[in-house]
Design a protein around this nucleic acid. Structure first.
Lengths: 139, 139
DNA sequence: TACTATTAAATTGTGTGAAATTTAATTTGG
DNA sequence: CCAAATTAAATTTCACACAATTTAATAGTA
C-alpha cells in the first residue's frame, strides 16, 4: 500500500472536516456578523469577561499575530473594548461592550443549528470528541 | 449545561486538531520546501500526473482562488509546470517536472514520521478516520 | 541603581481559504 | 451561424495563521 496516496492519509480528512465545519458555521455566524475565529473569541469572553490577549490566545491556541488584528476588528464592530492594564501597561485587557454582551442571546441557538446541519448523531459526535481530545492531550 | 461554553463545543477540537496537524507536518515538510497545502497538491499529482486545476481542486476541495497562487509558487520552485490544454485553451494542465517527480522519494517517510509524532495508536487513528469519513460522506 | 533578561503586544512578511468579479474560451439554442 | 449561456482560471478583497522581529514595560541582579 502506497503511504503517499491521498486516500490513505489520516490527516487529510481532519483538515477537510475542519474547513467544512467553518463553512457550515458561516451562514449562521453571518447573522451575528462574526467569522468562526471571531466567534471563538466571543465564546471565551462570554464565559469570562475581561481577559488579556495572552489568556485568550492560550485558550484558543492563537498568538498575538493572529489575535491583535482580529480583536481590532471586533473593536471596530463595537462588541469588545481594548484597554491597557493599570498594573502592567504591557497587557491589554479585552472586555465585552453592552452590545457584545447582548450578542450572546442571538448566539444561543448557533450550536444546535450547526450540529443539525452536520447530519450526524450526538453519539457519533461524542465519540469523535473523545478520540480527538485524547490525541490533543498527548500534545 | 451552557451550549456556548468552549469546552462543550464539538467543532473546536476538530479545528484545533487540524491546525495542530499542520504544525506537526511543518518541520518534516520544510525539508521538502513545501507547506501542507502544497504537499497535498503534490500527493494528488504523484498519484496521477497531468491534471487540470479543477481536477486538483475537486480532490482537495479548493477553488482556483486558492490554487492559482499556490500552483504558481510550486512552478517557481520548478517542481511543477503549467500549460494550457490544446483541446480547450481555458483549462490549465499541471504536470510534474523531473525534480517534482523525484521529490516523491524524499516524501516517502513523511507519513510515518507524522503519525509517530502524534503519539496515538494506529487503531485510534482508524477509528477517527471512520467517524470523520462518515460525517463527510453526509455532506 | 544601572544593566540585563524577560514578558506582552504589535508589527512584518508569507501563505492559505473563501466569496465575488472578471476575462477568455467553448457550447448551445434559435 | 451567431448571440447568449456556460465554463475554467485568474483576479480582487478580506480574514485568518504562523514565524520572526520589534517595541515597550517590568523584573531580576550584580
Amino acid at each position: 500500500m502506497d503511504q503517499l496516496k491521498l486516500h490513505n492519509q489520516v490527516c487529510f480528512p481532519v483538515y477537510t472536516l475542519a474547513k467544512e465545519i467553518v463553512n457550515r458555521y458561516r451562514p449562521f455566524l453571518q447573522d451575528l456578523d462574526l467569522t468562526y475565529p471571531q466567534y471563538l473569541v466571543m465564546l471565551v469572553l462570554w464565559e469570562k469577561d475581561g481577559q488579556t490577549v495572552s489568556q485568550i490566545g492560550e485558550k484558543l491556541n492563537l498568538d498575538s499575530g493572529t489575535l491583535t488584528p482580529l480583536l481590532k476588528r471586533l473593536e471596530q464592530k463595537k462588541i469588545i473594548a481594548r484597554s491597557r492594564s493599570e498594573k502592567d501597561e504591557r497587557t491589554v485587557i479585552i472586555s465585552l461592550t453592552a452590545s457584545g454582551e447582548s450578542l450572546k442571546d442571538k448566539a444561543q441557538n448557533v450550536p444546535s443549528q450547526l450540529v443539525g446541519s452536520l447530519s450526524i448523531s450526538v453519539d457519533e459526535l461524542q465519540k469523535l470528541r473523545r478520540i480527538i481530545d485524547q490525541i490533543l492531550s498527548n500534545i
